[in-house]
Each structure stands twice: as structure tokens, then as C-alpha cells.
Amino acid sequence: MADIDAARKTFEKFDRDGDGFVTAVEFQQAMVELGDRHYTVGLAEAILKTRDANADGVLSFDEFFQRAKEV
């Protein structure tokens, strides 16, 4: 249960507007805040695409958590 709680807290840091989804812009902004100043929206889009199971252009918590379990 701790794993899902930690994943939820991390997801919430990326989901800046609290709508339950992470956009490429939100992902990029979070990565910049984490110290990667060269992280572009284009890179974020490419990474989200690899994890976006339903191809809706955003990352849901379920998609985020599924990927976290694989790593």
C-alpha cells in the first residue's frame, strides 16, 4: 500500500492543476523544477506518448502507476 501512496504523492506533484491528468506541459514544468532546466515540452510529449495507454494525450494516475510498477 505504501507504494501506491508514494506514487499518488508523486503524481500529484506533476498534476499541477489537480484535474487528475498530467499534460506534457505539466510534466516538463515538474522536471524543470526537479533540476533538469533543459527538459523541453517536446521531450515531455515523447515520454508521455510511451506511457499513454489510451492515446488521449495525457497521463492518468493509472497509466502513471502502471509504469511505476514496471520500473
Rank of each mutant, 00 (worst) to 15 (best):
M1I: 11
M1L: 11
M1K: 09
M1A: 13
A2V: 14
A2D: 14
A2T: 12
A2I: 11
D3T: 12
D3A: 12
I4V: 15
I4W: 00
I4K: 10
D5E: 15
A6S: 10
A6P: 00
A7S: 13
A7N: 02
A7Q: 04
A7G: 07
R8S: 10
R8Y: 06
R8Q: 12
R8M: 11
R8N: 06
R8I: 11
K9I: 07
F11P: 00
E12P: 05
E12Y: 01
F14G: 08
D15E: 03
D15A: 01
R16C: 00
R16L: 13
D17I: 03
G18S: 09
D19V: 10
D19M: 05
G20Q: 03
G20E: 03
G20M: 03
G20P: 04
G20C: 02
F21L: 15
F21E: 11
V22C: 03
V22M: 05
T23R: 10
T23N: 06
T23V: 11
T23P: 00
A24S: 13
V25L: 12
V25N: 09
V25R: 15
E26T: 08
E26W: 01
F27W: 02
F27G: 03
Q28W: 01
A30S: 10
A30R: 11
M31S: 10
M31N: 06
V32D: 01
V32G: 04
E33L: 12
E33D: 15
G35C: 09
D36V: 05
D36Y: 12
D36R: 07
R37E: 14
H38I: 03
Y39K: 01
Y39H: 07
Y39L: 04
T40R: 06
T40A: 11
V41G: 02
V41L: 12
V41Q: 14
V41W: 06
G42A: 11
G42D: 15
L43Q: 15
L43S: 07
L43I: 08
L43N: 08
A44E: 06
A44V: 04
A44D: 04
E45S: 13
E45F: 04
E45W: 05
E45T: 08
A46Q: 15
I47E: 10
L48N: 04
L48I: 14
L48Y: 07
K49Q: 13
K49N: 11
K49I: 00
T50Y: 00
R51W: 07
R51E: 01
D52H: 12
D52R: 14
D52M: 08
D52K: 13
A53D: 05
A53M: 10
N54G: 01
A55E: 09
A55P: 05
D56K: 13
D56F: 05
V58S: 02
V58M: 09
V58H: 09
V58I: 15
L59S: 01
L59M: 14
L59H: 05
S60A: 07
S60F: 02
F61T: 12
D62M: 05
D62R: 14
E63Y: 06
E63R: 15
E63Q: 14
E63G: 08
E63A: 08
F64C: 01
F64V: 02
F64H: 01
Q66K: 15
Q66F: 01
A68S: 12
A68T: 04
K69D: 00
E70Q: 15
E70P: 04
V71E: 05
